[in-house]
Design a protein around this nucleic acid. Sequence first.
DNA 1: TCAAGAATGATAATCATTATCATATTGCAA
DNA 2: TTGCAATATGATAATGATTATCATTCTTGA
Lengths: 143, 143
Amino acid sequence: MILKKDAENSVEAASKGLPKPRLTTGQQSVLDALQHQPQALSAQALYGVMRRQQPIGLATIYRALDALKVLGLVQHRVTLTGETLYSAVKHDHHYLTCLQCGVSVPIETCPVKELEAQLQGASSFRIYYHTLEFFGVCGRCEV
Amino acid sequence: MILKKDAENSVEAASKGLPKPRLTTGQQSVLDALQHQPQALSAQALYGVMRRQQPIGLATIYRALDALKVLGLVQHRVTLTGETLYSAVKHDHHYLTCLQCGVSVPIETCPVKELEAQLQGASSFRIYYHTLEFFGVCGRCEV
DNA sequence: TCAAGAATGATAATCATTATCATATTGCAA
DNA sequence: TTGCAATATGATAATGATTATCATTCTTGA
Ligand SMILES: [Mn+2]
Ligand SMILES: [Mn+2]
Ligand SMILES: [Zn+2]
Ligand SMILES: [Zn+2]
């Protein structure tokens, strides 16, 4: 009897032109969970969310996130408090952050698309995503 | 007798238009040390460098770096390994980094100057610096 | 079917950063 | 100039996120 437990392992994102990678069950679970989240999450937060659905280890989540990053399926950014937030690679996430109180305002515009394509061609890199964040002091915090 | 130990506390950088802040001796030392470094350093590395010249505590360095950031005199960025690197705010430091091996290639171009000025005007923020980094996989790491 | 290799999960170990707290320094009023 | 309250500093403990271990459980291909 053949177990039909292949969840399609659909990998589409940035991996165009690369031999389609097969994800482990852990990686697939983490990717699914991330794609169902409205905003970026820390590994620990993801752990809290996922363990309610299925048993999974924190180490597996960290390993999966790293692997998914290298595959171009997940992107990351580091907050001022030092925690890393992960999200599925869909659209950009850029912010204007106050160094004093930490408040972050999302930025819609992104002027680096062209440079990215340019770098992609000029370098030997396959670029998956980028981080762009402005730091300063908000009006409430300024003297 | 009046001790002439005021090291001018010259603060020029991004603090244009703000009441000139007086730096503590610790902050001034850290700023000087950073300005004499050719590249960004971690707080720990800075500790190693500075303590050879004068006695200073690691906590003081961390506190000074935070204060200097809020003053717009120091900028930071976080590496893939999780350590924060600091540098005096002079010019931008942008990179193209491999998620697999960690190699980082400096990028000269920066297309966000305009957006920054735009945000500066549209928001209530006083913007000091920004981070911009591209992530992907380098040629040596790609399958 | 089965063994080798890969993945997983529980847990210990790291390590950068923060919090404490006692001491030293500074700035300013008297 | 003196005295003191506020601030800064430094040694060290505590924290917390991430990583390393390692025994166990899947996967996979011969
Ligand atoms: Mn962008
Ligand atoms: Mn720039
Ligand atoms: Zn603020
Ligand atoms: Zn690489």
